[in-house]
């Protein structure tokens, strides 16, 4: 066979494979839209998104997912508050401060933790953390917003840490040396030079970590408590969107209003993660470090 023919075949092969995976994903998205939109025949968009009562099997049923949206949002926000500082600081420590030997041991450990199955974390939260929280804070129940956020934070820390670490580690040595040469201390160099230089990578890490938290199902199903209400305090039980979908989908009759409502909830969830990724994309372009002189 001629070299050119081989080149062409390989090119078409790769294009086919790439097209295939993109098409499949696109079709799943279309499916989500087509299965979710019919709910608007039963309730208005406003009632669906801002309705505070979720009674999908009552007669008459109520399909308001506001409480679920708020729950997802709060759980993600709170887990971010815990996970972002911890994850980024661990990354800074590993890339800049720790000795090579420590970093070599700790980094794989952190990456190993990223592969922890979520059901294990959920079980831990349910059996160990829930009673602990209940006793420590003297509250009636340990399965709540706080517990779920904590567990999600544990899940996203490894993601945030390991991607940030890569970003920080890849900051050009010359920048650091220049900073030292100007008389900056190590701390000043980290805060003023290294972190700003790797900010786009750190942002990507944060957004990826948060996407993982917002889409996470098993953990919130097990430890969030599952009450479909807008929480009044940190220790109220909540019912984030993925938990609601997972718990109810198996029993929702095919093609019923409930079934469409769950798909529409999935659509809202998808919109959330989509916006997350757009923001991540924007930030990583906006603050991209091009060359060493642009800082």
């Amino acid at each position: 066979m001629k070299q050119q023919t081989i080149e062409k075949t390989v090119k078409w092969c790769f294009m086919g494979i790439a097209l295939f995976s993109i098409t499949v994903l696109f079709l799943i998205m279309l499916f989500l839209v087509f299965e979710g939109l019919p709910i608007l025949n039963h309730v208005s968009f406003k009632e669906f998104v801002f309705g505070i009562y979720w009674y999908p099997t009552s007669d008459p049923a109520d399909f308001g997912i506001f409480a679920l949206i708020v729950a997802s949002f709060l759980v993600t926000l709170l887990s971010g508050v815990v996970a972002i500082p911890l994850g980024v600081m661990t990354a800074v420590y590993l890339a800049e401060i720790a000795s090579t030997r420590t970093a070599e041991i700790v980094k794989p450990l952190v990456e190993l933790m990223a592969s922890m199955p979520s059901v294990v974390i959920g079980f831990f939260g349910m059996v160990v953390v829930a009673p602990f929280i209940r006793k420590t804070f003297g509250i009636p129940v340990g399965l709540n917003l706080f517990n779920a956020s904590l567990m999600l934070a544990f899940m996203s820390i490894p993601t945030i840490c390991s991607i940030s670490e890569d970003a920080i580690f890849s900051v050009p040595q010359a920048l650091k040396e220049a900073s030292f040469a100007l008389g900056a201390t190590h701390l000043e160099t980290i805060v003023r030079v290294i972190v700003p230089a790797s900010i786009s990578g750190i942002c990507t890490a944060v957004i990826l970590g948060m996407s993982r938290a917002i889409g996470e199902t098993m953990v919130v199903l097990m430890v969030a408590g599952g009450a479909a209400m807008v929480p009044g305090s940190l220790f109220d039980p909540v019912r984030p969107m993925p938990a609601s979908i997972a718990a109810e989908m198996a029993e929702a009759p095919f093609g019923s209003e409930h079934y469409h409502a769950l798909f529409a909830t999935g659509l809202v969830l998808f919109a959330f993660t989509f916006v997350f990724n757009l923001v991540a994309d924007y930030i990583s372009h906006r603050f991209r470090q091009t060359g060493e002189a642009s800082l």
Binding site: R134, G225, G226, A227, A247
Partner: peptide, 24 residues
């Protein structure tokens, strides 16, 4: 309708676990 603030558990076993560890 059951109050919205009621916790919900996906299984009989989960409910036993939740009630067994919560005094109220």
């Amino acid at each position: 309708r059951v109050i919205p603030s009621a916790l919900t558990v996906p299984s009989n076993g989960g409910l036993v676990q939740a009630v067994g560890t919560t005094p109220g």
